[in-house]
Every structure is written in structure tokens, then in C-alpha cells.
Nucleic acid binder design. Structure first.
Length: 649
RNA sequence: GCCGAUGUAGCUCAGAGGUAGAGCGCUUCCUUGGUAAGGAAGAGGUCAUGGGUUCAAUUCCCGUCAUCGGCUCCA
């Protein structure tokens, strides 16, 4: 019997029924056969060693394919499990999947513990087992036999997983002396794994449930060549150089103090100046878009949060209330600005003609985040949102929402954030208690977001269960230097707060109506935004934002006064410059300015003073030649103008 | 909050059961220099913090705090 195999280039060839992808690869070339990890047959990724029994479109997957990598790492998780079983007899296994970069396995070591100091011996054992080139054998097994196997082994985690599977679709994979419940696919044998690096150990709750037992999770990554591991490790080193915590310290943008408290950032002068420019940029953009600035206090009465629902949801997990000494009234640090803004809306009667009303505030809010979760400027306990609340008529929602999308995209474009993901976060319909408000409001809000994003042509991913407790949202997510995803811009439609605060407007029918609220923050929080900005530009900020635009470097202290004069002149052109008048050689001053990522260096010596010029050097590029001060000012201001024109078109 | 690691000078880090070191930075002096590190001298540390073991602890053990990597959470 023959079957027809169609290759990605459209060619079709007949093969014997029962042929494996690996055999097909061998028939093409030995080299190919040596690099095939798995195969995709009619859309499904399978073992390359699995017999093919019917016509199929076949794609051979190697290390260069996602499916190949995933299988490699999945098989590596099994290999690690085998090694662990040798070193830690009696270890029990949870799950061990491949992930974006490598794999992990959750294990229960009983009384034993494991730390990074133990990695070396595990890695060595893995490599030793890999060299045995043990094949990954697939076995279909009945549920009863499978249950018996893990009962005997005493692995309650695998038993729990098994109970959820149906008989007839259970497979085991065995390599060497290790057998695991697994649906595959796997690579042909362990010999493909040539380089192993265990990266971290962490506690992880069984099935992601905080209330269940915490297992030990070991992360690792493997490669088919030692060289690729070396390259990967280098890449990680490079990424660390972009880390905003490191750059923030080096460039003197922000700091933390144990005395002030964890998660409470202190903005240093350079960081504060940078942030202020960002705020002004946003103020300008919002003014054009019809927003009205408001200002509200940092605390609010407990009743405010009872009305808003925040007290119910977070009262116990927030910072403890502040009590007035005489009356014993309770106040909370504000965790959000919306309740205050709702009260501003209510300060006078509103007509349909007034809507939409757009109230904007750089509001500083405080949230008690779990201590283990704090992280540089990206996750803090006190931060400032570029917040605004739009109160509109129901028929205005979609239009307003689309305008906000435009604003967010404008901001991202201005700061060159290209690799964002637009994520629509909906509520989890199976877990309605987590959320506030009725079904009808939720449905309206979710539909409004989906339609607005669609009409704007945004490519979105939908995440169920990620909504805020009072409404669905559209978030703009960006990755940081170490690959973690963070929410920056956010837009949220809210039918619930207007109801809780009993917001109203008088319609053209002279009846009372309920407005709809849109919460939005294009930066999200200034802290987080600046953190991501630092990482994206590696501390080399756009010229209009950067703390110091130019360093003036006198060749010797004879020219210090001339340098000061030039600094004064540049101020007239709105150029931020400082004089490095240290008693150092020019080479040293240049080096230091390069390291501090100052965009321009102006070298001043005898020639320049005589000709009334400055010698211009650009960071990362080198000498540009001599220019008059006016000319230099034009260069800078043109460069800034060019970036702004680019944004506006 | 949970699991694991870490905490030594302003920064980056070395060190050892007998009370501490380097490089950079800082101060002073010499040098007055032309596009990525000129030279010398000096100041600077309750070795995170509280307790325990010991003749002796910064070093070993325990608690606390903070930081780092994950987990959970994230208005």
C-alpha cells in the first residue's frame, strides 16, 4: 500500500504506508535526517518516528522551526526529570512543559530542598544521559494501566492529571529509565540535546492555585550546539545592560531608599526633569484633544470607596486607613482617581450638550502590592497615572474610544514603541463574582471595545479573565529587557461606576440619563512608562527628552570661561548643556560623556575660541566637525523638529 | 504573601572564625592636554539588622529588613 506525501513546496511523492517522517527525511538527505526533530503532518505536530498511515501534507521540523524547538525543550524536560530521579530518588513530578525560552518541570522533593548550587550536578547528569542517545518511545496505554503505574510510583500529581483524561487517549513516553504521562510530541532521541543550562529554581503552586501545595519549579534551556548556548547567554548579558534599574542608577534618574519604604520611588533631578517633559508632552496632546485638567487630593474618605466598590474589593488588602484623631473618620490613600473624578462630575448638573466631558489629572495613587512583586519602577506602591475620565452619552462611547486609541498610538509613535501588543481583556464568564456590575452592562462595554478596536484596524489578542473588576479594557502591552510583558496604555469602558455614583445628565428629552465612563491612561503610569522607555532606548533618550543634550568639554582649564559662555548662549536656544570643567584630559571627558549617553559633545579649545565655533561630536558616532554656535543650535532644533513632524504625520 | 538566592566603601565586586581589600568615583596636589581612561597622595566601612554558638563572629546558626529570580496577585 502506498500513501501520498505532499511537501511544503507542493511536490507529492508516494511512500509505503507506515513510513515515518524520519525515514522520509533519510530518503531526501542524510543531513536532513540528522536535524529532523518532529514533523507536522496535515497541521498536527507529531513524532518524527510515528508511522504515517494515510495521505498527508508533511513538513519536517528542525531546530529552526517553532515546533522543533518546542519538542526539543519538552523532551529536555523529560531528560531533566530522568536526571532528577537518579539524583533525588522518590521525587514526584507535576507538569513539565516547554515555554518561550526553554522548559521547566514542577517537582515535589518531599523534605529535600534544591538550590541553584545543585544545578551543576543535574546538568552533568542530563548531559551524561543525553549522550546515551536514548529514544523517546511512545506507548498508548489504558487508563487503568496508567493509574496503576503512578499508584505504584506514588505520584499523586500524575494521578490527579490522569483522572481528568479519558481512556483511549492516554500515552506514555519512555526514554532510558524514565516514563512520563505525556501526549508528546518528542524528538527522536536524547542525543540531540548537546548543551544544557538550568537557569532558575522557584516555588510554584500546584496547578497555579495559591491554596494548594507549592512545588519546586526548575527552569532550564537546552540547545543542539554548545555554541548556541554561549550565544544565548551572551544575549542575556546584553539584555541586562538595558535593565532600567541599572541604567536608572547609572544615569541618576531615580533611586529607592529603605527608609522611605520599598516600592516608593524617589525621582532624582535628571529623572524628574525627564518625567516633566513627558508630562508636558501629554498635557499638550490632551489640550488639543479637548481634555480639561483637574486636581484632586491624595486621600479620600472611606465612604467614597464604599460607593465605588474599591473598599469591598480591596479594603482589606490596601494600606491601612488614616484616621482623624477627633472624629475617628477613616481616609484611604487613593488607589485610583476615578472616584474623585466622579464627584467632580457630580459637582453640578450636566446637560447632554456638555458631553463628552474629559477630566484629566496626573494623579498619584498608592496601592499595597505584595512585597515579592515589587520590581524597579515597573511595579511600585506609589505611582502617577496620566489618568483621565471621559463622561459621555452612550452613543458617543465608540467614537470617544476610537479617539483615545488614536491618542495612545500617537504617544507610542512619538516615543518609538513599535513592538506593543494590543490586548482586549474581558471578564471570565465562569467567575462572575470577581467582577462588579450586571451582565447587560458588561456585554455593552465588551462589545464597544471590540468594535472600536476593529474599526481602528488594531490587531488585538483577546484575554479572557483579565478585565478590571469594574469593566473590560484594551491594554497596550510592551516587553521589558528581560522579556517580561507589562501593561502601559490602557483604555477601559465602564458602565458600573456611573451607576454606583448615580451620575446623570439631562437629555434633549428633558429626562435624566446615565452617562458612560471611559477610563484611560496612555502612559499607564509615568514610572512604568519611563522604565520601559529606558530599556527600549538603552538610556539613549530622544533629543527632546534627554536630561542633558550636550556636554561642553574644554580642552584645558584655560577655556573653562569660554565653555561657560557657550553654555549660557545655548540656554537662549533652549538647549540643555553642562560644562565638564574637571581637571581631566579631553579623551577622558569624552569617554565619560559617551558612557553617560549624552547625545552631543562640544569640544572647546584654542581653534574654537579663535574662530567662534564649537567642535561637535555625536554620541556613538564621533567627530562631526566644527560649527558656529548658531549652526549647532539649528542642528539640534532641526533634529527635534524632525522627530516631532514625523510623529504628527 | 510563598519558594530559592543575595546583602562587605558612593558604584562594581574580592575576602577570611583572630576586628577588612581592589578597581572606578570623591578630595588635594602635579600635569594644561585635541576626539573613548595622564600621574601621585588622601579621605571613606558598627562587613544590612537583632539574637544565638564561641575565649573570639563581619565570617557559623536562627529571626527581621531590603534586593534579585520565579510563583500567586495586580483597581
Amino acid at each position: 500500500m502506498k500513501i501520498n506525501i505532499t511537501f511544503p513546496d507542493g511536490q507529492t511523492k508516494p511512500y509505503e504506508k507506515g513510513v515515518t517522517a524520519l525515514e522520509i527525511a533519510s530518503s531526501i538527505s542524510e543531513g536532513l535526517a540528522r536535524s529532523v526533530l518532529t514533523a507536522k503532518a496535515s497541521g498536527e505536530v507529531i513524532d518524527a518516528t510515528l508511522p504515517l498511515n494515510k495521505d498527508a501534507e508533511l513538513q519536517l521540523l528542525t531546530w529552526n522551526d517553532d515546533g522543533g524547538k518546542k519538542a526539543m525543550w519538552h523532551s529536555s524536560a523529560h531528560l531533566m526529570a530522568e536526571a532528577l530521579e537518579v539524583i533525588y530518588p522518590g521525587v514526584k513530578f507535576g507538569i513539565g512543559p516547554p515555554i518561550e525560552n526553554g522548559f521547566y518541570y514542577d517537582i515535589d522533593l518531599g523534605e529535600q530542598t534544591i538550590s541553584e548550587h545543585d544545578f551543576k550536578k543535574i546538568e552533568e547528569k542530563m548531559l551524561e544521559l543525553a549522550r546515551e542517545k536514548n529514544e523517546y518511545h511512545r506507548n498508548e496505554i489504558s487508563k487503568t494501566d496508567a493509574l496503576n503505574y503512578f499508584k505504584e510510583k506514588g505520584d499523586e500529581y500524575k494521578l490527579e492529571l490522569l483522572h481528568e483524561l479519558e481512556d483511549g487517549q492516554i500515552t506514555f513516553y519512555t526514554q532510558g529509565n524514565f516514563t512520563d504521562l505525556c501526549k508528546g510530541p518528542h524528538i527522536p532521541n536524547t542525543g540531540f540535546i548537546k548543551a544544557v543550562k538550568l537557569t532558575k529554581v522557584a516555588g510554584a503552586y500546584w496547578r497555579g492555585d495559591e491554596k494548594r501545595k507549592q512545588l519546586t519549579r526548575i527552569y532550564g534551556i537546552t540547545f543542539p550546539k554548545q555554541k548556541e548556548l554561549t550565544e544565548y547567554l551572551q544575549l542575556l548579558e546584553e539584555a541586562k545592560k538595558r535593565d532600567h534599574r541599572k541604567l536608572g542608577k547609572e544615569l541618576e534618574l531615580f533611586t529607592f531608599s529603605e527608609k522611605v519604604g520599598q516600592g516608593l520611588p524617589l525621582w532624582l533631578p535628571k529623572g524628574a526633569a525627564l518625567r516633566e517633559r513627558l508630562e508636558n508632552f501629554m498635557r499638550e496632546a490632551q489640550k488639543k484633544a479637548g481634555y480639561e485638567p483637574v486636581i484632586t487630593p491624595h486621600i479620600g474618605h472611606k465612604d467614597l470607596y464604599i460607593t465605588s466598590g474599591h473598599y469591598d474589593k480591596y479594603g482589606e488588602d490596601s494600606f491601612r486607613p488614616i484616621k482623624t484623631p477627633a472624629e475617628g473618620e477613616e481616609f484611604f490613600l487613593k488607589p485610583m482617581n476615578c472616584p474623585h473624578h466622579c464627584e467632580i462630575y457630580k459637582s453640578k448638573p450636566r446637560s447632554y450638550k456638555d458631553l463628552p466631558i474629559r477630566l484629566a489629572e496626573f494623579g498619584t495613587v498608592y496601592r499595597y502590592e505584595q512585597s515579592g512583586e515589587l520590581h524597579g519602577l515597573t511595579r511600585v506602591r506609589g505611582f502617577t497615572q496620566d489618568d483621565a475620565h471621559l463622561f459621555c452619552r452612550p452613543e458617543q462611547v465608540k467614537d470617544e474610544f476610537k479617539k483615545v486609541i488614536d491618542l495612545v498610538l500617537y504617544v507610542f509613535k512619538a516615543l518609538d514603541f513599535q513592538n506593543y501588543t494590543a490586548q482586549i481583556s474581558l471578564r471570565d464568564p465562569k467567575d462572575k463574582e470577581k467582577y462588579m456590575g450586571g451582565d447587560e452592562n458588561w456585554e455593552k462595554a465588551e462589545i464597544a471595545i471590540i468594535e472600536a478596536a476593529e474599526e481602528k484596524g488594531l490587531k488585538t489578542v483577546v484575554e479572557v479573565g483579565e478585565a478590571a473588576f469594574y469593566g473590560p479594557k484594551l491594554d497596550f502591552m510592551v516587553k521589558d529587557a528581560i522579556g517580561r510583558k507589562w501593561q502601559l496604555g490602557t483604555i477601559q469602558v465602564d458602565y458600573n461606576l456611573p451607576e454606583r455614583f448615580e451620575l446623570e445628565y439631562t437629555g434633549s428629552d428633558n429626562q435624566k440619563h446615565r452617562p458612560v465612563m471611559i477610563h484611560r491612561a496612555p502612559f499607564g503610569s509615568l514610572e512604568r512608562f519611563v522604565a520601559l522607555l529606558i530599556e527600549h532606548c538603552e538610556g539613549k533618550f530622544p533629543l527632546w527628552l534627554t536630561p542633558e543634550q550636550a556636554a561642553i568639554l574644554p580642552i584645558s582649564d584655560k577655556y573653562n570661561d569660554d565653555a561657560q559662555n557657550i553654555s549660557q548662549l545655548l540656554k537662549n536656544y533652549d538647549i540643555r548643556a553642562f560644562v565638564d570643567d574637571r581637571n581631566e584630559k579631553t579623551g577622558k571627558k569624552i569617554r565619560d560623556s559617551e558612557m553617560k549617553k549624552v547625545p552631543y559633545m562640544l569640544i572647546i579649545g584654542e581653534k574654537e575660541v579663535e574662530n567662534n565655533t564649537v567642535s561637535v561630536r555625536k554620541q556613538g558616532e564621533g567627530d562631526l566637525g566644527s560649527f558656529s554656535i548658531e549652526k549647532f543650535a539649528t542642528i539640534i532644533n532641526d533634529e527635534i523638529a524632525a522627530s516631532t513632524t514625523k510623529i504628527n504625520n
